[in-house]
C-alpha cells in the first residue's frame, strides 16, 4: 500500500492524474446583479430577481443549484440515474442548499464544506473518485446567495451601514459540473490540496486578505511540487480574493520569485462592473462557479485557453468564532486543467 502512495503523490501536496478525467459539461445560473455584470452572456440562466418565485431566499438558492445540476446533466444527455456520486456544498449552516438539492437529485451524495473553495475541493474529490475507478460520472454543484449569506455572516439585507472599501459582495448564483472518465472537454491534469493557513485576520469583512495567504501558499506549493513556473499556464485563476486579496497574493508570490501578474486574474474582480458598487469585488462559492464554469470553461472549449490553473479559496470562519475574536482560517485548493 505504501508503495502505491509513493507512486501517485507528487511532492508534498500534489497528485498527478494518470487517467483522463474531463469536465464533460457545465452549467451556471446567475442572480440579478450578476446578470447585469460583464460576463452575463456566459451564464446559462439569468434571474431577474433574488427570490425566483420561491417563498424564501434559502429555497431560491437551492432552486438555482437544482437548476444548474439538471442543466449540466441535460446538456450531455445524462440523467441523475447515470451519475455515480453527487458532491455539493454551499455557505449556509449545515450546507442546507446542497442538502435540499441532493434530496431532489437522489444520487449518492457527499456534502462538503470548503466555503468559497468548494468548487476545487469538490472537483478534486470527484476527480479522485474517477481516477480510483470508483465512478464513471461525478456531478459537482455549489451555490451561494447574497441574501442568505449576508444575514448569516453579517447584517440583514435592509440594514443600513457603510461596508469598508475592502469588503466584498456575496455573489448570487449556482454552478454545476459533470466530471467524466474520458470524454470531451478540458481534463484535470493535476491537483494540489491546500493546507489551512491563518495570517491572523480577525475582521470578517477582510476575507480577501485572509484568503490571499492560503492562495499564495497553495500556488507556491503547486509550483514546487510540479517543478513548473507561472509561464507554464495560459491563465492562473483564483476564486474570490477580490481587489485587495488578489494584489496581496501576487506580491506574496513575487517575494518568492514567482511572478504571476501577466497571466493572472481573480474571479471576484471579473463578475461586476465598477459602477455596481461592490467595493472589492465578489465573494462566495458562486463566484468561481459562475466565472470558471461559465466564462473560462467556454474559452477553454474554444481553445482560447489551453492550460489553466484554477485555485479557489475559502475563508473557513464562523460568525460565532469571529465574534469571540478568533482569527480566520483559510484554505485554497488548486486544479491544473488542460484542453
Amino acid at each position: 500500500m505504501q508503495e502505491l502512495l509513493e507512486i501517485k503523490k507528487m511532492g508534498r501536496q500534489s497528485i498527478p492524474l494518470e487517467k483522463k478525467v474531463s469536465l464533460v459539461s457545465t452549467a451556471t445560473v446567475a442572480g440579478p446583479k450578476e446578470s447585469l455584470g460583464p460576463l452575463t452572456d456566459y451564464f446559462d440562466r439569468r434571474n431577474s430577481d433574488n427570490i425566483i418565485k420561491e417563498n424564501s431566499f434559502e429555497k431560491a438558492e437551492a432552486h438555482m443549484l437544482e437548476e444548474s445540476c439538471f442543466l449540466s446533466l441535460g446538456k450531455v444527455g445524462l440523467t441523475p440515474g447515470d451519475i455515480d456520486f453527487f458532491i455539493a456544498g454551499d455557505l449556509l449552516n449545515q450546507i442546507i442548499s446542497a442538502n435540499i438539492c441532493a434530496r431532489k437529485l437522489a444520487i449518492p451524495y457527499f456534502g462538503i464544506y470548503g466555503a468559497c473553495s468548494t468548487l476545487t475541493e469538490g472537483m478534486s474529490l470527484g476527480t479522485l473518485l474517477i481516477e480510483g475507478g470508483f465512478a464513471e460520472h461525478v456531478l459537482l454543484g455549489t451555490s451561494s446567495h447574497n441574501s442568505t449569506a449576508e444575514r448569516q455572516y453579517r447584517y440583514p439585507t435592509e440594514y443600513g451601514y457603510q461596508p469598508p472599501g475592502y469588503s466584498q459582495q456575496t455573489v448570487t448564483g449556482a454552478g454545476a459540473v459533470v466530471l467524466g472518465a474520458g470524454g470531451k472537454g478540458p481534463a484535470v491534469e493535476s491537483i494540489t490540496i491546500g493546507k489551512v493557513v491563518d495570517p491572523g485576520i480577525t475582521d470578517a469583512f477582510d476575507l480577501g486578505s485572509a484568503m490571499s495567504a492560503a492562495a499564495a501558499d497553495t500556488i507556491y506549493q503547486h509550483f514546487m511540487d510540479t517543478q513548473r513556473d507561472p509561464s507554464y499556464y495560459d491563465l492562473i485563476l483564483t476564486g474570490d480574493l477580490g481587489a485587495v486579496g488578489s494584489k496581496l497574493t501576487q506580491e506574496a508570490l513575487a517575494n518568492k520569485k514567482y511572478h504571476i501578474s501577466s497571466n493572472y486574474i481573480d474571479c471576484g474582480n471579473l463578475l461586476y462592473h465598477s459602477h455596481q458598487n461592490t467595493n472589492a469585488g465578489g465573494s462566495g462559492c458562486a463566484t468561481s462557479a459562475l466565472v470558471f464554469l461559465g466564462y473560462i470553461y467556454h474559452r477553454m472549449i474554444n481553445n482560447e485557453l489551453k492550460k489553466v490553473l484554477l485555485v479557489t479559496t475559502g475563508a473557513l470562519h464562523s460568525p460565532t468564532t469571529v465574534m469571540q475574536g478568533e482569527s480566520i482560517p483559510a484554505v485554497a485548493h488548486a486544479l491544473a486543467l488542460e484542453v
Binding site: 495570517p199 491572523g200 495567504a213 499564495a216 507556491y220 506574496a252
Partner: peptide
C-alpha cells in the same frame, strides 16, 4: 507559511 507574516501585516 509561504508568506512572511511581518511583511503581510
Amino acid at each position: 507559511p509561504v508568506i512572511d507574516i511581518n511583511w503581510f501585516n
